[in-house]
Design a protein around this nucleic acid. Structure first.
Length: 764
DNA sequence: TAGGGTAAGTTTTTT
DNA sequence: ACTTACCCTA
């Protein structure tokens, strides 16, 4: 394929090897195009070829904008464009990015009118919550009725539609909530402004505000050409938007503004709309033609990715939705092997099955990165990760409890944020007493109150600690802290980033505090900081010119990805949402049970259920040749074992395209629990399924042997007697965790069952 | 003030 | 199950 592309580019054409629909989408000029592209029909190919051919026609690269939803997709698009025509054009000047990264870029340069400096901080949802918590405390409302999460949900909804506090009544809210939400919205924004910070919603909303204002003045003929923001309105000749079905109203407005003077090409698939909960509206795609006169619509239905068995499964799932535009995918790749459906005993066995199969495939020479494991929610990933490790397989986990979310990593990154923008209260408050330097709650609260009174940031208040009425000792400590930050700030943009990190870890005493602790946990934390350092070195090598602000932006917008083992030889684990837009030779779709996928929260909402079905469709259509669906008879969920029944999506699959196998899997060694939960029989799934229902006999001695753990030189075993300072002597009935976080369940006569940290008891 | 223990809430999905 | 939030004590 690549060869063909190169050959055609020599001839100046970009359409050789494209089918007629793809060619139409690539070549259409003179008006808006809407490309309805089914899964695997060559969407990215169309976009990249279109961009390449625009460049060939002499459009300057900086007059082209390509927008995607995820950074992963943006990276891939840039790479493929470069692959097509790096030799001929300066592809680096093309604007390629996610909605959020493009807005961040605009705001860094032009954000002053909306109160953002070029070094503003981006707040993630934890940051948002801590700001909102303070706002709600200030408003004196019932913390039960108005949780930070809940109110932020309202704000998010508003921002997704482009509403400020004054527009809040356009959401249908009843009055006590409406007026409180409005007050909270205003106070929240005031705090963000004082902190020189923007949350995800603000990135879009504030950028759109700037552009709205610029358009107003430029249509009034004032200063139009002088205003750099107004120039953005007419900067682009061509705008391309990927995954248009997942656009929310504010994003659509942004697209309209930036394409005021441009030809617009949007690509999407209504069957893959999976972000309704984020304010995306499938109708955007249906309305596109109305909003943009003379829209040419191109449908792409030939799938180049999957075998027909996989496609017929996908079709069987999506066919049950109503209100589709309606496409039927076809493929010339032949039937391939049937889609496998496996019923396992529990999530442990499910994970083990996947790990074992992956192991076998890799041993046969399959390239690990061509294998992917999907799940509906992150919570399902842990067991699979464990089993992969046990099988000696490296894995890459996209998203989830990200690396950057870890306590020590967040601390150090907060230090870095503070160096760049000390007014960011959330970050400053996080690190002021970390490691412990005797600046406690009382001190910080006094300073924070002072700051709120004055309407300034915490940092500003720290410049004058006496004014907050602090004791002499506290004043001195604050002064020392401020001075230390000042010293560190001098390094910013003066020394290489990895060195800056090293200075921070040293001078703040962070490393020393961890080193002194000498526990398993502190060692792990130090290791994580090492990993962060490695991460930063890698980043610096890739982008030598990058500054601290670039790194922090990457961290906050790209989010985490955790790797275990060799990155190059790793299988990928991710949620189905993250899998959108990707494809893999071999896919395992796990947890195909009712209440898991579809998720329990959507069971009684037909609209959300349709979205869930689209999500299943997305999952199935990621696979090129091998697709395996797994489900469990029972699963530990929310701390309790639940009996699972097969997902309705599994039951929809056509028998002729699937191979449904019941499968017995040996019991994995596990820690004995005092009482086995009574196991009910899994529901007979389909009549022709036979699975080995090994009776849940009590654990044998051998199995119990596995359940004995070393703890600090002591052999723990069920039934042993232990002494606790306060509770006296008791009998060990179980435990969980290990090392420092080893918790023991002990039955104390007359006191009942207690869970205690292992270091608090002694063997008798 | 810090550290530990207990109670309570929490989980859908992402930028 | 697991994490965070608050309360209590040293």
């Amino acid at each position: 394929m690549r060869h063909m592309d190169e050959a055609s580019s020599d001839q100046g054409g970009r359409t050789a090897g494209l089918n007629p629909g793809q060619r139409a989408a690539v070549e259409h000029r003179g008006g808006p195009v809407l490309v309805l592209a089914g899964a695997g029909t060559g969407k990215t190919r169309v976009i990249t070829h279109r961009v390449a051919s625009l460049l060939d026609e002499g459009i300057p690269p900086w007059r082209i904008l390509a927008v995607t939803f995820t950074n992963r997709a943006a990276g891939e698009m840039r790479e493929r464009i470069e692959g097509l025509c790096e030799a001929d054009h300066n592809t680096r000047e093309i604007w390629v990015g996610t909605f959020h990264s493009i807005c961040a870029r605009i705001l860094r340069q032009h954000g002053t009118p909306v109160g953002l400096s070029n070094r503003f901080s981006i707040y993630d949802s934890a940051d948002q919550q801590s700001v909102m918590r303070k706002v709600l405390e200030g408003l004196n409302v019932s913390p039960k009725m108005y949780t930070p999460r809940g109110v932020l949900g309202i704000l998010d909804k508003a921002k997704n539609r482009g509403y400020g506090p004054e527009d809040l009544e356009k959401l249908d809210l009843q009055d006590p909530v409406l007026s409180i939400a409005r007050k909270a919205y205003e106070a929240y924004q005031a705090r963000l402004r004082a902190a020189d910070a923007a949350d995800f919603g603000d990135l879009l909303l504030q950028a759109v505000r700037l552009l709205r204002a610029a358009r107003k003045t430029s249509t009034q003929g004032q200063l139009g050409d002088l205003d750099p923001v107004a120039r953005l309105l007419t900067r682009f000749d061509h705008v391309v938007v990927d995954e248009f079905q997942d656009t929310n109203p504010i994003q659509a407005e942004l697209v309209d503004l930036l394409s005021s003077d441009a030809e617009l090409c949007v690509v999407g698939d209504d069957d893959q709309a999976i972000y309704g909960w984020r304010g995306a509206d499938v109708d955007q795609i249906l309305l596109f033609g109305d909003r943009h006169r003379g829209t040419e619509i191109v449908k792409l239905e030939q799938n180049y990715r999957s075998t027909t068995h996989i496609l017929s499964c996908a079709d069987a799932v999506i066919r049950k939705n109503r209100g589709r535009l309606g496409k039927t995918l076809w493929s010339e790749l032949g039937p391939g092997e049937p889609v496998r459906v496996l019923m396992l005993r529990d999530e442990r066995d499910e994970a083990r099955l996947v790990a074992n199969e992956a192991r076998a495939a890799i041993d046969e020479g399959v390239d690990p990165p061509s294998i992917a494991i999907f799940y509906r929610t992150h919570a399902q990933s842990r067991v699979i990760e464990d089993e992969l490790r046990r099988a000696g397989i490296s894995c890459r986990i996209v998203g989830g409890v990200a690396f950057y979310e870890r306590l020590e990593v967040k601390d150090v990154l907060s230090y870095l944020s503070v160096l760049l923008n000390p007014h960011s209260d959330v970050h400053l408050a996080r690190v002021v007493n970390r490691p412990a330097r005797k600046i406690g709650n009382t001190t910080v609260t006094r300073l924070a109150n002072r700051a709120t009174e004055e309407g300034v940031s915490l940092w500003t208040a720290m410049a004058n600690p006496e004014a907050a009425g602090l004791a002499a000792a506290a004043v001195r400590r604050i002064r020392e802290f401020v001075a230390m930050i000042g010293e560190l700030q001098a390094f910013v943009d003066e020394v290489p980033l990895p060195d800056l990190l090293a200075e921070v870890v040293e001078r703040t005493g962070y490393a020393a505090a961890l080193a002194v602790e000498e526990s398993d946990e502190s060692h792990a934390r130090l290791e994580n900081l090492q990993e962060l350092s490695g991460n930063l070195i890698e980043f610096t090598e890739e982008r030598p010119e990058a500054k601290l602000s670039d790194y922090l932006e990457l961290v906050s917008l790209v989010g985490g990805e955790r790797s275990e083992g060799d990155k190059e030889r790793a299988v990928t684990m991710m949620t189905v949402h993250s899998a959108k837009g990707l494809e893999f030779e071999r896919v395992y779709l796990t947890g195909m049970e009712e209440r898991v996928f579809p998720h329990s929260r959507v069971l009684d909402d037909p609209v959300q259920m349709e979205e869930e079905r689209r999500l299943a469709y997305v999952a199935v259509t990621r696979a090129k040749r091998h697709l395996t669906l797994t489900m469990c008879q029972r699963r530990m969920l929310y701390g309790q074992t639940q009996v699972g029944s097969p997902s309705r999506f599994v039951l929809d699959l056509p028998a002729e395209a699937t191979d449904q196998v019941g499968r017995a899997v040996t019991r994995s060694p596990r820690v004995a629990s005092p009482r086995q939960a009574p196991v009910r029989k899994g529901p007979a799934w389909q009549n022709d399924i036979v699975y080995d229902e090994s009776p849940d006999a009590p654990f044998t001695d051998e199995e119990l042997g596995d359940a004995v753990e070393e703890g600090e030189g002591v052999h723990l075993f069920i039934g042993m007697h232990l002494r606790h300072k306060a509770w006296g002597e008791g009998e060990l009935v179980g435990w969980h965790g290990s090392g420092r976080s080893l918790k023991l369940q002990i039955k104390f006569p007359g006191r009942g069952l207690k869970t205690v940290v292992a270091s608090f008891v002694q063997p008798v």
